[in-house]
Amino acid sequence: MHVRVTLIAAARGSSLLAERFDDDRPLDQAGWGEVQRVAHALIPLAAAELRYCSPTPRSRATGDALGLAPLAQPALRDCDMGRWRGMTLGEAMAREPEAVDAWLADPYSAAHGGEPLAEFIQRIGGWLDTRPADDGGRIVAVAEPAVVRAALVYALKSHPSTYWNFDVRPLSTATLIGWAGRWNLRFDAQTERV
């Protein structure tokens, strides 16, 4: 028994330099344009038996624009960034440079007063491991890029510090096939999205 989980990174809600921790902003004009450019390749994912999204406005809007009609999953929320919520990385660095350095260097640090990166990865992995394994069942989830990175670290059983080595672009996909505790990363041809 196995399940196939395709993760789609939500389209942009702001430029890369303007991204904020725990950002609740909706898709911006560039994000809508990105969805329109790639929708033809991602719309077939709507055939998945189960369709989920992070509870953020841009994840929901991305899923809706792709015709997924996804169900918001609180477990797929972004990492709780504590007192840095709403700040850019630059703003947090200007206010608390030592705390930012500690957070970037140690995945078990909660220097911001929120959720340590290692716990965030485990939370996302817990969601992944509780997906129903219906031999060959398909699931699609639109989530923040941070959530996709966390899922990849968990599925590959990597050290939490490798989280920083995954560059997840808006509307990129990653497919995990397996079941609780045993996941494989699958790369599909551009034409084979379902």
Rank of each mutant, 00 (worst) to 15 (best):
R85S: 15
Y154Q: 02
A189V: 04
G113D: 13
D80R: 06
P97C: 05
P160I: 11
L76C: 05
R138C: 11
A118L: 06
G114S: 04
E144A: 10
D135C: 11
N165K: 12
T130Y: 03
I139G: 00
R95F: 06
A174I: 08
D101A: 15
D188P: 03
A180N: 09
L176F: 08
S172T: 02
A151R: 11
I177K: 01
L152W: 02
V142N: 09
D135F: 09
D78N: 04
G113E: 10
L156T: 05
P97I: 02
W183H: 09
A99P: 02
V100Y: 00
R138M: 13
G125H: 04
A141P: 05
H112A: 10
G125T: 08
A141L: 11
V142Q: 03
W183T: 07
G137N: 07
N184H: 14
D134E: 13
A94P: 06
R123K: 09
S109D: 12
G137R: 15
V153F: 03
R182W: 01
V100M: 02
T173L: 11
W103K: 04
P70F: 06
P132W: 06
E144L: 15
G86K: 02
R123C: 05
A72Q: 05
D134C: 07
V142I: 15
E96G: 08
R85P: 05
L76N: 00
P170H: 08
E119L: 15
F166E: 04
A72P: 15
R149V: 12
T162G: 00
E119F: 01
R85T: 15
I121G: 00
P170V: 12
W84C: 14
L185T: 06
T130G: 10
M81F: 09
R149A: 11
R186T: 15
G113W: 05
A110N: 10
W164S: 03
D106I: 05
A72H: 07
G86D: 12
W103T: 05
W179T: 15
R85N: 13
W179Q: 14
G136V: 14
V153P: 02
P170I: 12
L176H: 02
A118P: 08
G86Q: 06
W84D: 12
P170Y: 14
P70V: 04
L176G: 00
Y163M: 02
Q122M: 10
S109K: 09
R182E: 11
P145A: 11
P97M: 03
V100R: 01
L89K: 09
A102H: 07
W127C: 11
G113M: 08
L156E: 11
G178P: 08
V147K: 00
A99E: 03
L104Q: 10
G113A: 11
E144W: 02
I121L: 00
C79G: 00
W164G: 03
H112Y: 00
Q122P: 01
